[in-house]
Design a protein around this nucleic acid. Sequence first.
DNA 1: CCTACCGATCGGTAGG
DNA 2: CCTACCGATCGGTAGG
Lengths: 196, 196
Amino acid sequence: MGGQVTQERREQIFNSALKLMRSNGFQGTTMRDIAADLGIEAASLYNHISSKEDILRNTCFSIGNRLVQSIHEVNDLYFNAEEKLRWAVKNHVLTLTENLDASYVFIHEWRNLSEPQRTEFISLRDDYEKQFTQILETGETEHLFNATDKKFAVLTILASLNWIVEWYRADGKMKAEDIAVKLGDFILTGLRKDSI
Amino acid sequence: MGGQVTQERREQIFNSALKLMRSNGFQGTTMRDIAADLGIEAASLYNHISSKEDILRNTCFSIGNRLVQSIHEVNDLYFNAEEKLRWAVKNHVLTLTENLDASYVFIHEWRNLSEPQRTEFISLRDDYEKQFTQILETGETEHLFNATDKKFAVLTILASLNWIVEWYRADGKMKAEDIAVKLGDFILTGLRKDSI
DNA sequence: CCTACCGATCGGTAGG
DNA sequence: CCTACCGATCGGTAGG
């Protein structure tokens, strides 16, 4: 009870680790690096986490599950395809921007998961892509979208969305919601002017 | 003189190394892994390459220079903005698909470059992005594109283009040229149907 | 949370 | 291209 003034140590470890892994990669970040960032010894980390991969595993599935959950909600709750797409984009952008270091690791370092987590992670990602594809199918049914190759379109869209972890800064000019709108616009209409 | 029946050993080393780095990352690939793939000892590699980073450096700058050169040509030779964009997309797609493993390493592992190469690489990338931005500016001048935030648009476009190294397979259904056309279409018009 | 330490492995070199 | 080997460093454990 009562507000905690200090972060839990486990959370601090995750924050330091993800910050370092973003810069130097999972394999390029050592337990000694993480410990030094917190001013303790590497051995002390093991009182709070079970292994280095513990950090990676929790991060990848935490972000992944959040994304999957939110797109299922979108597919359950909203009916117009364009609206669905805009909500899916917004959820994706907000999840990433609100967890920048974790999202960066989620996108770039999941390959370092050992089995069976690696396979499990790929299933989670496939589920997400399938839900996204369903939005495009809805749009086709409603005669709103013209994506002939929906799998291709989804991968292209997700690439655009994931790229924001490369350049987004919380203190930058563009707010996350603005980015979501601009990405939604781009995905829907591309570069070409509607009328000259 | 005369046709060489066997690949140069240095080239074989690069091929093995890039294949392994694509699967396991730069730091996750050891000199012993590369040597084992070729059936020799790790120490023998040093008769052909000077270091592990030698492989990374050559790969990143080889792909990077090729991309930069081709986009400069596009900006020098073709005048219509849409045509320029389609050529730039095509060149990008062909460069990546024709050098899949190298391109994957180029996109994902350049952060492992040590200074001053890392900074030099970023300059090269900035040059490329600047040339791409110029195409969008041409399109605006010609009243063809409506990209208000061109830097943002360029990063989004490049994200879509770079994503192909994740899923492209030389033996797949889609040929590189088809992919270039579809990506060009998507970038120009997005998902929305022009008329209902 | 620390000291002390382990077995394994790394990139690279010497010398042939 | 190999044998033999180096100094450094890694993730993690024992025991307090």
